[in-house]
Every structure is written in C-alpha cells, then in structure tokens.
Design a protein around this nucleic acid. Structure first.
Lengths: 209, 209, 209, 209
DNA sequence: GATGAATGAGAATTCATTCAT
DNA sequence: TATGAATGAATTCTCATTCAT
C-alpha cells in the first residue's frame, strides 16, 4: 500500500538485494530476529554493512519483506482442483496449511513474535490471516447456502475459530519440542474435528436414482 | 524446584518487592516488555534502580514471576460444581478461559511474546498450557468411556486442538484491534463448535421410572 | 599522625571491630582487595553492613589498619641477641624478613598493590620500608666506622639496594607461582651476596694481647 | 601464540588504533590505570567510545598491549658491543635498565600494579622479567666457567637477586617522591655492589708475554 | 554502488554509603 | 549499637545508523 518507488534496479543491485533477503532469512532462522544484528546479515550475505542501507531503511523493513514472502507461502493460491466434496476440500486446505507451516515453522514463529513491536508487521500478519479466514468463511457460507451446515454459528465466527484451531495447532506442534505428532494423524484429526464442528451433512447425492 | 535460599524477607522488603512486581505489570502492559527499562519499573514503583536488583537479577526474572501469576489466573482451579451435563461443562470451561484471558489480554499477549527468547518463560507457558489441556483431555476421555463421543480422534489430539482453538481465538480477538466479537456470542459459538466436533450425543437419560 | 580520638570502646564494640579487621584480612587474602566488597567483609564478620561504618569511614581506612599491622609483623623488633658477628647478624635479618614475608605473602602483595591508589597507604608502606632500611643503614654505617666495609658506596644507598634485593626477592619468589626456591638456600644466597657486596672483612679479632 | 585472525587493518583503522594506544598510555600515566575510564581514552584520542571497542575488547586488553611495548623497551636487545670487561658490562646493563625505567617510571609502576588483578598481564611481566634474568644468568654462568666468580651461589639465584636489586631500586627510587638519588651515583653503587657480590676477580690479563 | 570505520545514544549493572527502624 | 534495605552515581558495552573513501 506504500511500497513507494518501483525503482528499477540494475542487475548487480538486484543481486545484492536478493542476497540480503536470503541471508536475513537464514540468519533470522538460526539466531532469532532480535538477536540478529545488521552485521550478521551483511556478513552472511557477503556484503558490507553499508550496503544494507542501500536497499533497506532498517532491519524492520527487511523483516517485513521476509514476513510478506513467508505469509505468501503459508496460504497457497488455493486448491486448484474443484469438484471435490466438502470434507476433501477441508482436508486439502488443512494439509496445505500444515505442510507450509512445517516447512518454515521456526522462522514463522520468530517472525510472528516481532508482530507485537512492529505495527506494520502486525498489519501484514493480520492481512495474511484475514485472507486465509476469508477463504474459509466463503467456503462455510456456501455450505450454509447449500444447507449442508447449520447457520446457528455465523460463518465468520466459525471461520475464525476453525482456522485458528489449525494455526494454533501448527504453532505449538512445530514450535514446542515436546509436542510432536504424526502429521497425517494430525491432519486427519483436524479435518474430522472441523467437519464435525460444522455438522456437515453428507453431500446430497446429485446422482443415480 | 527452587534455587537455594528462600530467605524470609522483612516486612519492608516484602512491601518493596511487591511494589516492584505491581509496577512491572503495569509498565509492561503500558509500554511492552521489551520497551520497558529497569528504570521505568523502578520509577513506577517509586524506588531506586538499585532496589530492583535487591530483589531480581534481571528483567527476565521479574517477567517470569509476572508470567507465573498470570498463567495461574488463566486456568482457574476448575469449575467446582459437578453434575452438569457435558455441553454445560464445556461452556463453563470456555467462559472461564475467555473471561480470564480478556481480563489480562494485553499483558498476556505481551508476555507470550517473550516466550520465544526466554526458555524458562516458555517452560512456564508450556506448563500452564499442558495443565489446561490435560484437564480437557481427561474430560474427553471420560466422554469416550461413556460412549458419548467417538474414539476416532485420540483424546489427546482432540484436547490439543480444541483447547488451542479457544486459546487462539482469545489471542487474536483480544490482541488485534480489528477482531472484536460479542463475548457471549463467541462463547456460545466456541461451545457449539467444540460440542459438535466431539459429536457429542445427548446424555443418555438416566431416568424413566 | 591523625588517628584522632582515642575513643574508648565498650567491650562489645571492641569485639565487633576486631571481628571486622580479622574478617577483612581473611577476605582480602582470599579474593583480593579490590574485589572485596564491604558486604563480603560484613558477611564474613557476621555483622551487618551498617556496622562496618560504625567503626570505619571507608574500605580504605580499614585497609590501612590491616596494612599497618602487616608491616609491623614484617620488620620484627630486631634480633634481640647481640654480639653476633656481622655475617650472622645479616643472616638473621634476612631470615627474619623472608619468614615474615612468607607467612603473609599473598596479602602483603595484595596490600602493596593498593599502595598506588591510596597515598596514605603508600605513606604507611614507605614508613615501614624506611624503618627497615634505617636499621640496615645504621648497621652498615657501624661496619664502615669499624673499617670492616669500604666507604665507596654510601651507607644509605647500600642499605636501600640490599634491603631492596631481599624485599624484591620475597615479592617475586612468593608472589609468582613459577619462582619457587628452597628457603634455606635462598637465605644463604642472599646473605652471601649481601656480605660480599659489602666486601666484609673478617672481623678483626679483638683478641691476642 | 595469538588468537585467531590477525586481520590486516586498513590505513585508517591502523591510525585510529594507534591513536587509542597512544592516548591510553598518556591517560594511564596521568590518572592511573584504574581511574581511567574508556571515555577518557576515547576523548584523549579524539574518537568515539564505540571506536574503542572496534579495536579492543576491554581496557585490560589495551593495557596488555601498552604493557608489552613498555616491557619491550625496558630490556633493550642487549649491549651490542663486546669485549668489555665484566664490570663494564655490568655497568652498561645497569645503566640501560635504570635509564629505560626512568624514562617510563610512572607508567611502568602503574602497569606493574595491575599485574595482580590480571593474570595475562602478570604473564607478560614474568616473561619480560625472565628474559632479563636469563641474560644475567647466562652472563654469571660464563664468569663462573671462567673462574672469575665463585660457584657457591647458583647462577640462577644470583641472577634473580641481583636483577631484583636493580629493579626494586628503580621501582622505589622513581616511584616514591621521597627517594631521589643522583642517577650516576646510583648506577655506580649498583655496579659496585653487584660486582662485589659476585666477588669478581680482576680479569686475568691476557697480555704480557 | 560498495565499503567498513566512526559515531554516540542508550541500557544494564554494581556497590559504597546512608539512614530509618 | 546493630541492622539491612534503599539509594543513585558511575561505568561498561552494544549496535543501528551515518558517512568519508
């Protein structure tokens, strides 16, 4: 919303910038965001500290960029294949989320933490979260329209809560050493709970008399 | 479980220490944990910086104390009255959690965030969390034993996920400006989703004379 | 020169004061003067910090007291028995110094070090040193008068240098781990070098009529 | 003997580093080592405090560097001209030591004093001292071999003691206001005492057929 | 554009000394 | 006198950011 000047970078500049982002992600992941000093990022990227400021105004700005890309990966465009029955769609969504989270669990958690001290960052997170929830909400609303799920719980609330359940599960399961689960079992459980929570009726067979 | 000497404090010491804890909680809440400097706490407590170090080794140590008391409040001993039907019990639990969270929402969130950079603190959180989940798990297991809920999802997983749903809902609903809900509606929704997720059968009537 | 009021202390006060001096010496020796905090002394003495200030104005003042007593021990009144021949007297002096130093080597060294930052303390040291040297000087002067040692080196300079040799030897031999010597051999060597340095002629036999 | 990377400094860095060392030496000398704060050194060097930490980890590290260079100056490579008779050689050695000490008397004393609280520093001093003594010892051993001095005192002990005499004399003569001597007279006295202590026989004339 | 040295505003921590009890 | 909590000046060290080369 404010990314300002598009500024076409030269080839070299592009490369340096990219090196910095990659390096930052690596170092953040290894040592934590707060613990990471600009020097560390620069060193990892193999450039001078000064160069950092050629591309970013501050550590926070860089962090935001990293966060944006992470959140992008978290909620993949959407399950591309249609026609699946509700439970299958839900499972696909859960599986996608869990896998994506797992892949970047540590850094996701770390970034999440900066959320509090940086309003912009929080905005980014809320945005990503909202996008995910919106999709869920839309899906629930459709089910309600089709009479497959009751309307006693508002689609918005339900979406919030169910999406939250999945997110929180990932956060703790991947963030705390002590909570390890078999991913498949977890996905299945999440899906079952979710499906039942919506009191999903078996899809009306469109078919065969 | 504790290190060395408990050292009984004099009346005056006791008072100063308490002033510091109270002040810390207030200042943490107002400005954030990271942003709070020892001086701020001391000033708020109306004592000299040095006095801080008479009672605490570092900000972290004090934070841990604050956290412990917060987590204590979060999961109240348990609903004392029995004989409630499952849905009522679930609702009671949810209501308790939501209210407790709401009361200290901001500082809870802030403390939570320090969880990543301080292992001891994280331990405290995991412990509190585990206690809550354990209660839920026990309750689910009982329902399973009584044949009121299916066993296709392990009690442990279900407990994790449902407790997580509630927690995460509180975290976001109270933590993000943009997500405001009517508490009663939320509690009711959480309870409905939870109950349905467990596919709770209406309690077998013990009755019929 | 300024010890001010004699102030007769009560029995109890006397005891507390003594406890502090003893404690200080012990703690200084164990941890070094600079490293020792008033609390340490008080704790070791089993009294409250505040009590320290009842008897001493500062750590320095206490240190001076400790130093004075140490220096007192270093140069014992003098070898009481007369009539010894010069070499024997010299040996006696050296032996006394070496033994006295050895007994309190560590703390002597530590105290010595404070000498630079505390003029009063330095005064004390110089005084003690001067006393020792004065004795040596007197002794050399007598030998010169008796024609037993040449006058080409002034008694004052010689006293300084020879006394210094002994002192420095003790300082390094007892202060550095790496320089250990057999005390007897050392005393003998010191005495030989000293005697020869003075080109001592065998005492003129008073005898033979 | 050194830790890790020597890192070749840029011209500018080199200059800043040197400024710091020079400044430190000056400030240490003026106010004492302990009394000197990092800010003082930085101010004297005309750089920011932060720059201090670009080159040194702590005051102690810098002090070690200063000490090393001082000790280096104290024991000059060695009197280059040979063929001197023993007494002349001894006198040359003493003169060199006294002059070198005198030139940096104050700071040498100050540095010496830090020796106790910093083991590394002490190591440096012991090393320098050992080098000086070793030279003396070698020289005495040669004299013993040539039959010019008796073997009743071991070369090692004698070296320790005589070198100590000279050192201690410098330490007190230049360190204490009250002990001023005419340098020439002192050097002569030291040499005489030293020579006699070794009972040096006049060199056998190589001459006369 | 790149470099890396220089900057200096903070923040934590210590401990001699005071003083109310 | 004894106690020990309270005080706060003093110092060290860090690291984001600037800027001369």
């Amino acid at each position: 919303m404010s990314t300002a000047a598009p500024k076409p970078l030269t080839r070299r500049a592009e490369r340096t910038r990219a090196k910095l982002v990659t390096a930052a992600r690596k170092v953040f992941e290894k040592h934590g965001v707060l613990e990471t000093r600009i020097v560390d990022i620069a060193k990892e990227a193999g450039v001078a500290v000064g160069s950092f400021y050629t591309y970013f105004e501050s550590k926070d700005e860089l962090l935001r960029e990293v966060a944006a890309s992470l959140y992008g990966e978290l909620i993949p465009p959407l399950p591309p294949d249609v026609g699946l029955d509700p439970r299958a769609r839900i499972e696909a969504g859960n599986r996608a989320y869990v896998s994506a989270y797992q892949k970047n669990a540590r850094i996701l958690t770390l970034v999440q933490h900066q959320t509090l001290s940086d309003a912009t960052l929080r905005g980014l997170y809320e945005e990503a979260r909202a996008a995910f929830i919106a999709r869920v909400e839309r899906s629930i609303r459709r089910l309600q329209r089709e009479g497959l799920t009751p309307k006693d719980v508002s689609a918005r609330l339900a979406a919030h809560m169910l999406a939250g359940m999945v997110h929180e599960f990932c956060y703790t399961a991947f963030g705390f050493e002590s909570l390890r689960f078999d991913p498949e079992e977890a996905i299945s459980a999440l899906t079952t709970l979710w499906t039942r929570a919506l009191a999903l009726k078996p899809e009306k067979k469109k078919s065969k008399p």
